[in-house]
Simulated scan of single mutants.
Amino acid sequence: MTREEKATVIEDLKAQLGESGIIYLADISGLDAGTTSDLRRACFKANIKLAVVKNTLLAKAMEASEKEFGDLPEVLKGNTSLMLSETGNAPAKLIKNFRKKSDRPLLKGAFIEEAIYIGDDKLDALVSIKSKEEVIGDIIGLLQSPAKNVISGLKSGGGKLAGILKTLSEKE
């Protein structure tokens, strides 16, 4: 690869890193061609961009990026695949589901909205992260709950109140 080609790859990676707030680094070495193809298909269905990258080029792109990647460049050893997503827990869920059939991919690290996770042991924590849509749904549910209680109370209380008024008016 010539210097110009490397510079182009670094610029492309830098642009991808800049556009995405969710970046996962995984090790997919040891997967055969069929399993790798299945992984790529699963990533495509989950709207996750998967690319095998050269560690040195990715490290230079991280360094040139405006984002602060902390210790993440230190995990760039061996085979590295870059997973980019719009949903924070989608790649973690995909990795966990894929590992039911295979021992790979292994999570090397992740960058999620400026939070950095290093190591495969963080996979369960990443799976449990709620997506933006899930958090909004939870908030809407919490906001609707008191209103539903008030409405149901008024409906049932209205009948009781009318009954009490009717009884009082009959006594007089």
Results as ranks from 00 to 15, higher is better:
119 G>H: 10
123 L>K: 02
101 K>P: 15
105 P>A: 02
117 Y>A: 08
121 D>M: 12
125 A>C: 10
127 V>R: 10
131 S>R: 10
115 A>S: 08
132 K>H: 15
129 I>Q: 06
119 G>C: 10
119 G>M: 02
102 S>T: 15
102 S>F: 14
110 A>W: 01
118 I>P: 03
101 K>A: 15
115 A>T: 06
106 L>G: 11
123 L>N: 09
119 G>T: 09
103 D>V: 15
111 F>V: 00
110 A>M: 02
120 D>V: 11
127 V>P: 08
125 A>G: 12
107 L>K: 05
115 A>W: 04
103 D>A: 14
105 P>E: 10
129 I>F: 07
122 K>C: 03
117 Y>R: 02
106 L>A: 14
128 S>V: 09
124 D>C: 08
110 A>H: 01
118 I>Q: 01
121 D>V: 14
106 L>V: 14
112 I>Y: 03
131 S>D: 13
122 K>N: 02
113 E>D: 15
126 L>S: 04
118 I>F: 00
115 A>D: 12
109 G>K: 02
128 S>F: 11
103 D>N: 15
124 D>S: 13
124 D>A: 14
127 V>G: 06
112 I>F: 06
128 S>G: 07
125 A>S: 11
120 D>G: 07
108 K>H: 02
124 D>K: 12
104 R>P: 02
130 K>G: 06
104 R>V: 04
115 A>P: 01
129 I>Y: 04
114 E>C: 04
131 S>L: 03
122 K>G: 00
128 S>K: 12
128 S>I: 10
106 L>C: 09
105 P>H: 03
108 K>W: 05
108 K>D: 05
113 E>T: 11
111 F>G: 00
104 R>Q: 10
126 L>E: 07
120 D>A: 08
107 L>Y: 06
106 L>N: 12
116 I>H: 03
114 E>T: 12
111 F>D: 07
130 K>S: 05
128 S>E: 13
108 K>V: 00
131 S>K: 11
125 A>T: 09
104 R>N: 08
128 S>T: 14
126 L>V: 10
122 K>T: 10
119 G>N: 08
112 I>L: 09
101 K>L: 15
125 A>R: 12
101 K>R: 14
125 A>M: 07
103 D>L: 15
122 K>A: 06
132 K>V: 12
126 L>H: 01
117 Y>P: 09
107 L>S: 05
102 S>D: 12
103 D>W: 14
117 Y>G: 06
128 S>L: 14
108 K>A: 09
123 L>M: 05
110 A>C: 02
131 S>A: 11
114 E>K: 04
103 D>S: 15
116 I>S: 01
122 K>W: 05
126 L>T: 00
